[in-house]
Design a protein around this nucleic acid. Structure first.
Lengths: 157, 157
DNA sequence: CTAGGGTCGATGACATGTCAACTACTTCGT
DNA sequence: ACGAAGTAGTTGACATGTCATCGACCCTAG
């Protein structure tokens, strides 16, 4: 590791901007979501993924993989959400080790109530601030970065 | 809140890409930083901000504001970093309530050792994957979003 | 069929972040 | 000069995330 290539002024500006945007956007979206719907962002993500799944149900490991969460984290979080009546667990029909998470009617109601406001917030604080070109650029490079990080030689566990 | 404007296909792709990139990038950068330098990202950020400050010292509230952290979080984190000998606290010379955080020699060594590898990782997994246009777009819109979120009428506490 | 290695999901111990006090000090208005 | 109100930083209780481990089950080689 000899002479490192530091970030030049443009790169530095992009990197700092990205991190600051990331943080502020997180704070604001979480704040509004909690205030308007009583949900944390992790709550919302779980409910959202479940609501998009066929029959509002997913295998636990499948959900964990989609969310890029550890199984442990998901298990803890599901327990808390189950306490609140948002989801419930069922046995997997064919795999005796498995568990299936299901959206409860209350969970369904919660996500349907939260979604319009949350989407509006995402628009207000991000999407609607970008030009069409910028939006296209974001879509393009973010997926490129994702592919790069998901490429072979990259162990998930 | 009548008919919500859902995200169209392009917007949805950008939004999902952004969130996935965010998560994967975080995981990978944190993983490499911990493996190569024994630091968490929050550790790195504190050390980095301090090392850029004149005389490697900053008022606690000043540091908290720059990092967009709550004072409480910073206080807890500083205590842990102090235990490890990376920073130390001093009284503020003129404001009796205040405290000043200072980088210790060991903290300085830690950040100087960690920085080249971390910057290389940021390059490898993000910066070098973007075209010049995309980099410029990221810089432009991220700062626009930051400005929007920092605009008046937005209480920090 | 069965032994061994793998996967699944849950759990407990611990690290980290949040929230609401609290103390000590400063600042401002009168 | 003094009291009320505000600010700085810490603390403890609690919520959340991580890591190592475990019991239960699956799968494949022999």
């Amino acid at each position: 590791m000899d002479e490192p290539r530091w970030l030049d002024a443009h790169e530095d500006r992009a990197w700092r901007g990205y991190r600051r945007m990331r943080r502020l956007l997180d704070l604001e979206l979480a704040r509004e979501l909690m205030r308007d719907a009583g949900l944390s962002e992790p709550d919302y993500d779980v409910l959202s993924d479940l609501s998009e799944a066929p029959e509002q149900r997913l295998r636990v490991s499948e959900l964990a993989d989609r969310m890029l969460w550890s199984r442990s984290r998901l298990s803890h979080h599901l327990s808390r959400m189950q306490q609140r009546g948002l989801v419930m667990r069922e046995e997997h029909p064919s795999d005796g080790r498995g568990a299936v998470v299901v959206l409860t009617p209350e969970g369904r109601r919660a996500i349907e109530e939260a979604a319009p406001g949350h989407v509006a917030a995402v628009r207000k604080h991000l999407i609607d601030l970008l030009t069409p070109d910028e939006l296209a650029a974001l879509a393009a490079f973010s997926h490129r970065v994702v592919d790069h990080l998901s490429a072979p030689g990259r162990p998930s566990p």
